[in-house]
Simulated assay, not measured.
Amino acid sequence: MKNNYVVTTSFQYMIECTCPSPDHTFIIDVHKGDIITVTEEKKYVDSLGWLALVLINDYRFYMYIQELEDFVSEGKIFSVMDLDLKINYLQYKVNETLDSLDKNNFSFYAKELAKLKEIQESAAVY
């Protein structure tokens, strides 16, 4: 089973080769709305830890699992399910603030909802 993550904040990622030659690194641009697919293929490298095979755009490479967890905790990426849940929650909050005529919170929740819906629409998994 593959796990898909939607990029919510653009960033650059440096791909490091786990081979003995240290000069095999390059940087890819990861854009808001891109999909990161984490496959079931994993490997363990002594002194480095666990890596998972990921697919981003046209790239296939191994990424440290800890880095993926860091991206999730920093809010740079959301799982597809988490994105759907967040959108559902924000839609509820927008409706709630409309019912209570709370202009300040309505504006905040509506902007957040619009941002996430834009990301959702640009993602290729929908």
Rank of each mutant, 00 (worst) to 15 (best):
113 L>D: 02
73 S>N: 14
94 V>G: 02
9 T>A: 07
91 Q>L: 03
9 T>S: 10
39 T>A: 06
126 Y>D: 14
115 K>R: 04
12 Q>N: 13
54 V>D: 04
119 I>Q: 03
6 V>M: 01
21 S>R: 12
21 S>P: 08
112 E>Q: 11
109 Y>E: 01
29 D>K: 15
112 E>A: 09
79 S>C: 02
34 D>M: 03
48 L>T: 09
87 I>M: 00
87 I>A: 00
95 N>M: 06
98 L>D: 14
23 D>V: 14
14 M>Y: 12
27 I>A: 01
25 T>M: 11
23 D>I: 12
51 L>E: 06
115 K>P: 04
98 L>N: 10
86 K>T: 09
55 L>V: 10
41 E>F: 14
39 T>E: 05
72 V>E: 13
16 E>I: 12
14 M>P: 06
88 N>H: 12
41 E>M: 11
24 H>L: 12
17 C>W: 08
42 K>W: 04
69 E>C: 05
43 K>F: 07
113 L>Y: 01
112 E>P: 06
54 V>C: 13
64 Y>N: 13
40 E>G: 13
75 G>Q: 09
112 E>G: 05
22 P>N: 03
116 L>Y: 07
27 I>T: 04
66 Q>L: 12
118 E>R: 02
35 I>C: 13
5 Y>I: 00
99 D>L: 11
27 I>D: 03
10 S>F: 09
43 K>I: 10
5 Y>T: 00
49 G>H: 05
68 L>I: 15
39 T>V: 01
32 K>M: 15
8 T>C: 11
121 E>T: 07
36 I>V: 01
126 Y>C: 15
43 K>M: 13
110 A>K: 11
22 P>M: 10
110 A>W: 05
98 L>W: 15
73 S>R: 11
88 N>D: 13
81 M>W: 10
22 P>T: 03
23 D>E: 13
62 Y>F: 14
53 L>N: 09
49 G>F: 11
58 D>A: 10
2 K>I: 08
71 F>R: 07
88 N>A: 10
6 V>D: 01
104 N>G: 05
34 D>N: 14
30 V>L: 00
32 K>L: 08
41 E>C: 13
125 V>T: 14
38 V>D: 01
60 R>S: 09
113 L>T: 00
123 A>L: 13
103 K>I: 08
102 D>G: 13
